[in-house]
Design a protein around this nucleic acid. Sequence first.
DNA 1: GCACGCTATATTTTTATAAATATAGCGTGC
DNA 2: GCACGCTATATTTATAAAAATATAGCGTGC
Lengths: 115, 115
Amino acid sequence: MSSIKIKIQLVANDDIAMGPGKADLLDAIQQKGSISAAAISMNMSYKRAWDLVSIMNKSFKQSLITTSVGGEKGGGAQVTDFGLQVLAQYRAIETKTNDAVSDETQVLMQMLVDS
Amino acid sequence: MSSIKIKIQLVANDDIAMGPGKADLLDAIQQKGSISAAAISMNMSYKRAWDLVSIMNKSFKQSLITTSVGGEKGGGAQVTDFGLQVLAQYRAIETKTNDAVSDETQVLMQMLVDS
DNA sequence: GCACGCTATATTTTTATAAATATAGCGTGC
DNA sequence: GCACGCTATATTTATAAAAATATAGCGTGC
């Protein structure tokens, strides 16, 4: 059973503040405890993940991710409480929008060619 | 007063079925009566507009845009009734999502750096 | 039969994005 | 003091997307 997925991008002053990619990366970092492990799990280059982390930390009032270098595990990354709040807020927006327009998207889906 | 804009992309089998760009192009074609005039009004190349029209016509069960070549005005393009229905459905989804999560997006906006 | 304005399409060039590679630095523990 | 695993960053290479350019065709009206 196929269906339409809704991608929601929150855009502030011309660049994307939060979208599915960054949200998923936050999730993965929280789960894995490091940027590199998160990147690998998402099939993403470390550089790309690190760039996204940098952009996120710069675009919000507080850091969403803190990192540490060296130590027994070589270092790591943690999602801050503030980061978890941002993520929860984004997930809430995702859920609410999907709920709000499920009927309408189904109608539109039926207008698409079968695939 | 700045605010977050929500970009909604309806994604079916890996490629975007409808997003803000295609919707705006449909609007412009309906208003201008030609692909080229619509493209100019959107600061878009004719080729890009034509490609989008082609993709839209292929991805829906019926054509959203019909075109004619030659004639007194050189030709033109019209949005079909079906195209108008698709557009209306997309706009309805946009409006409903914005209404459904305006509170949540405002909270998220306040978490962003001032710009 | 030529000019006009549009559709239709191919080809080339430019630009932007992503991926790959390389290197340095850090702190713990052996 | 060396290895490990991670962060941090620069540089290069490859790929994809967009833009630019070019050309052909159509039908009306002069």
